[in-house]
Lab assay of single mutants.
Amino acid sequence: EEEEKKKEEIARLLGVSKEDVERILKKNNLDIEQLLRRVQREN
């Protein structure tokens, strides 16, 4: 699934687990696209 791939990509870029990414998304109330763009910009 596309969303899972995005979570895995974010996890890889941040050096965290996919579960961490899911927690970040919930905690910050971000959607996956916003987080992915933010992470890609910083790297």
Results as ranks from 00 to 15, higher is better:
residue 1 E to V: 13
residue 1 E to Q: 12
residue 2 E to W: 11
residue 2 E to S: 12
residue 2 E to M: 11
residue 2 E to R: 09
residue 2 E to P: 08
residue 2 E to C: 08
residue 2 E to L: 11
residue 2 E to V: 10
residue 3 E to L: 15
residue 3 E to I: 15
residue 4 E to H: 07
residue 4 E to M: 09
residue 4 E to Y: 06
residue 4 E to A: 09
residue 5 K to M: 12
residue 5 K to G: 09
residue 5 K to P: 04
residue 6 K to C: 08
residue 6 K to H: 07
residue 6 K to D: 04
residue 6 K to A: 10
residue 7 K to E: 02
residue 7 K to S: 03
residue 8 E to A: 12
residue 8 E to N: 10
residue 8 E to S: 11
residue 9 E to F: 13
residue 9 E to H: 10
residue 9 E to Q: 11
residue 10 I to L: 10
residue 10 I to D: 00
residue 11 A to V: 03
residue 11 A to Y: 01
residue 11 A to I: 03
residue 11 A to E: 01
residue 12 R to L: 08
residue 12 R to P: 00
residue 13 L to A: 06
residue 13 L to T: 03
residue 13 L to F: 05
residue 14 L to C: 09
residue 14 L to M: 11
residue 14 L to N: 00
residue 15 G to I: 00
residue 15 G to R: 04
residue 16 V to G: 03
residue 17 S to M: 06
residue 18 K to T: 12
residue 18 K to I: 14
residue 18 K to Y: 09
residue 19 E to G: 08
residue 19 E to D: 12
residue 19 E to Y: 05
residue 19 E to Q: 12
residue 19 E to W: 05
residue 19 E to V: 09
residue 20 D to T: 14
residue 20 D to Q: 12
residue 20 D to M: 13
residue 20 D to E: 15
residue 20 D to R: 07
residue 21 V to Q: 00
residue 21 V to R: 00
residue 21 V to E: 00
residue 22 E to H: 04
residue 22 E to K: 03
residue 22 E to C: 06
residue 22 E to Q: 04
residue 23 R to D: 13
residue 23 R to I: 12
residue 23 R to A: 14
residue 23 R to C: 05
residue 23 R to Y: 09
residue 24 I to W: 08
residue 24 I to A: 03
residue 24 I to K: 02
residue 24 I to E: 04
residue 25 L to R: 02
residue 26 K to T: 11
residue 26 K to M: 11
residue 26 K to I: 13
residue 26 K to G: 06
residue 27 K to N: 14
residue 27 K to W: 07
residue 27 K to S: 13
residue 28 N to A: 12
residue 28 N to M: 15
residue 28 N to T: 14
residue 29 N to M: 07
residue 29 N to R: 09
residue 30 L to F: 08
residue 30 L to A: 04
residue 30 L to R: 03
residue 30 L to Q: 05
residue 30 L to E: 11
residue 31 D to M: 05
residue 31 D to S: 15
residue 31 D to R: 05
residue 32 I to S: 06
residue 33 E to W: 04
residue 33 E to Q: 03
residue 33 E to Y: 03
residue 34 Q to R: 06
residue 35 L to D: 01
residue 36 L to G: 03
residue 36 L to H: 06
residue 36 L to F: 04
residue 36 L to M: 06
residue 37 R to F: 01
residue 37 R to Y: 02
residue 38 R to H: 15
residue 38 R to I: 15
residue 38 R to P: 03
residue 38 R to M: 15
residue 38 R to V: 15
residue 39 V to K: 02
residue 39 V to E: 03
residue 40 Q to C: 10
residue 40 Q to N: 07
residue 40 Q to Y: 03
residue 41 R to W: 07
residue 41 R to V: 11
residue 42 E to Y: 04
residue 42 E to V: 08
residue 42 E to K: 09
residue 42 E to A: 09
residue 43 N to Q: 14
residue 43 N to W: 04
residue 43 N to A: 14
residue 43 N to H: 15
residue 43 N to D: 10
residue 43 N to Y: 07
